[in-house]
Design a protein around this nucleic acid. Structure first.
Length: 593
RNA sequence: GCUGAUGUAGCUCAGCCGGUUAGAGCGCGAAACUCAUAAUUUCGAGGUCGGUGGUUCGAGCCCACCCAUCAGCACCA
């Protein structure tokens, strides 16, 4: 009955803080999705981790004169902090510098090799004799062959924007010390994507109607344009060694190894919980559904290359029964980009709102609400502080927050702090209609959430809140209480029960305030589970990871059964109004720094 | 440059396989109400659906070209 849902999210590069684009595009949506499925009683496993090996990390490490390890540990720790603040409930958020991940990645490499999907190829690359290492393209400078600009990078000329090969540069030199690099032959392993092309095309052509059109179209086009082998090793020191003799100076290239993290993190999670085979419920049961939440820049890696890697491993790794196959991605609900104040986010230009910064000044649910309302599900969208404050005040506070506040306040003051009973006349048509309308939300909103249409789901919940405000105005219990208190009590009972339903319907989006409402309504217990950071010790390494314990969670995706007489708690407003002047201050802060 | 996407009311966006007077939220105007964080509810005004041309009995939705914005084509994943 219960479904197995694997929720994967992009592995953030641990080379800088998270910004709102990361949250809106890749981290908040899966959390909403995961919370919903947990409320439904499904078996959710949500995993990800910090990508500790990418080029940007070594770049930053070189720039700061520290080790890559130091860089990624700093930001990994920051990620754990941010995810706890905003409430991204990973069952495991680990990183890629663990013994477990090394082992799994090497095993997949070996399996691909044994199955004949890797080949070796030698090419010439620039080598620095002074530094005794091969240089990445962007470490090489020279004169642009197109426009004559003297400081063109090896991959692109910043002056004329031409895309270049470093060997095309006139007078190439190392960016680090100005020395002249020499061409030297180097041998690398390639993943034979051409050989896998037919299988990938078959996978992408089968039952993908429910995929977002931009994702499936892009992926199909990507494959149809022709797949060529991609190098999966590099001449660097920071990364995962090859499981072969004689390749000590080479590492697995990060794009090959990072996506394996979904798989290795699932295995780590199972081991951490003392059930080392448990991960197979998501990876080997054909009916399990695996979702990958990513930004659009990552589509080829998740819809094409990761399936290719899984197919190339033979698809029955760590499993004796060779009739079983590792599940290929069920859905890749990639998001477009979130821009800010009309301009694309840019880390290098410091044009971004950093998550830790934002969460320092605003409540997590206000941020969650706005980022969901403008989630770039089908196209690029724009974050503005003006709009953030407006939607917070005119939508979240005005419609939902105010509804809760007016009815809880009225009930608390006028009905002795208790849920009033249904009057002797019972429920009338309007009462029943109101209740059935909101109860139907479990289906309509549930269907939208299951289809990863989060914005539409939130809109529908807001519509129900507005409808409830209309019901309350129609019933006007503040009038009725003067001449027919029992009827006023009935209306308040109905409204309390409606917001008890809305509490659950909103909870995947607004978990913190739903929890508070839960308490105001007089309930005990936690709707959701507990987040915590734990240190894990392997044979020679240790790492800290974010974990989640859902065992005490009592939230259920089902209609309220609120009982008359239940004692309420003194309510407080769920949300704060924000001063419109804040928008100018925030923009000034952005421009000033 | 090549490939792909997007351009719908003041703002942010929905519009499934082409079919009667193009929708929502917010904003704006009017009214009702006063329990509530001057919040709520109802009603209303607002758009030649980027431009030009075409296919069709009929196009926001199909085709061609143009304009604008964006993305991919990188040793960035």
């Amino acid at each position: 009955m219960a479904e197995n849902i694997l929720v994967c999210t992009a592995w953030p590069y641990a080379n800088g803080n998270l910004h709102i684009g990361h949250l809106a595009g890749a981290y908040l949506p899966p959390d909403i999705f995961a919370r919903f499925h947990r409320l439904k009683g499904n078996n959710v496993l949500m995993v990800s981790g910090s990508d500790s090996h990418g080029t940007p990390i070594t770049l930053r490490a070189d720039a700061e004169g520290v080790s890559p390890l130091e860089i990624f540990e700093r930001f990994h720790g920051q990620f754990l902090e941010t995810y706890q603040q905003i409430g991204i409930t990973y069952d495991l958020f680990t990183h890629t510098d663990t013994e477990n991940h090394y082992q799994v990645s090497q095993d997949i490499f070996s399996a691909c090799l044994e199955n004949g999907f890797l080949y070796k190829h030698t090419e010439e690359q620039f080598y620095s004799e002074t530094e005794q290492r091969f240089l990445p393209d962007r470490y090489i400078e020279g004169t642009c062959p197109v426009c004559g600009y003297e400081s063109a990078r090896g991959d692109q000329c910043d002056n004329c924007k031409s895309l270049l090969n470093p060997t095309e540069l006139i007078n190439p030199r190392s960016k680090n010390d100005g020395s002249v690099p020499v061409l030297r032959a180097t041998e690398h392993f390639y993943l034979d994507l051409g050989k896998l092309s037919d299988d990938i095309l078959a996978y992408l052509s089968q039952d993908k109607d429910y995929w977002r059109s931009n994702v499936i179209n892009f992926s199909l086009q990507y494959v149809k344009d022709g797949l060529r082998g991609r190098a999966i090793t590099r001449d660097i020191g920071w990364g995962i060694p090859l499981p072969l003799e004689g390749y000590d100076s080479k590492r697995l290239y990060v794009w090959f190894e990072a996506v394996i993290g979904y798989f290795s993190a699932s295995i780590e999670w199972a081991a951490n919980h003392g059930e080392p085979e448990k991960w197979k419920e998501w990876w080997y049961r054909p009916e399990a559904k695996t979702y990958y939440f990513i930004g659009k820049d990552n589509i080829p890696f998740h819809a094409v290359i990761w399936p290719a890697e899984l197919i190339a491993t033979g698809r029955h790794l760590y499993e004796d029964d060779t009739s079983k196959f590792l599940n290929l991605p069920y859905d890749v609900p990639a998001n477009e980009y979130l821009n800010m104040e009309g301009e694309k986010l840019s880390t290098s230009r410091n044009w971004a709102i950093w998550a830790p910064d934002l969460l320092e000044r605003y409540d997590p649910d206000a941020v969650r609400f706005y980022l969901t309302a403008i989630a770039p599900e089908t196209r690029d969208t724009d974050f503005t502080f003006d709009d953030f404050i407006r939607r917070n005040n005119d939508e979240l506070v005005a419609a939902w927050g105010n509804l809760v506040n007016r009815v809880l306040g009225f009930a608390y003051k006028r009905f002795d702090g208790q849920v009033p009973p249904i009057g002797p006349d019972g429920l009338d048509d309007l009462d029943r209609q109101m209740l059935s309308e909101v109860e139907a939300g479990f289906d309509t909103i549930g269907d939208l959430l299951a289809a990863v249409k989060l914005r539409a789901a939130l809109d529908e919940a807001m519509r129900l809140a507005r409808s409830t405000n209309g019901y309350l105005n129609e019933k006007a219990p503040w009038k009725a209480i003067k001449d027919d208190p029992a009827r006023a009590g009935t209306s308040i009972y109905v409204t309390l029960r409606v917001i008890d339903n809305l509490k659950i319907l909103f909870s995947p989006f607004l978990p913190h305030t739903s929890q508070r409402l839960h308490a105001y309504l007089g309930y005990e217990g936690q709707l959701f589970g507990r987040q915590y950071v734990e240190d894990f010790v392997e044979t020679n390494r240790r790492h800290s990871a974010l974990c989640y314990d859902n065992s005490q969670a009592i939230g259920r995706w089902q209609p309220s059964d609120l009982q008359p007489g239940q004692a309420l708690r003194q309510p407080e407003p769920l949300f704060k109004k924000l001063e419109p002047e804040l928008a100018e201050q925030e923009v000034a802060r952005l421009l000033g720094k």
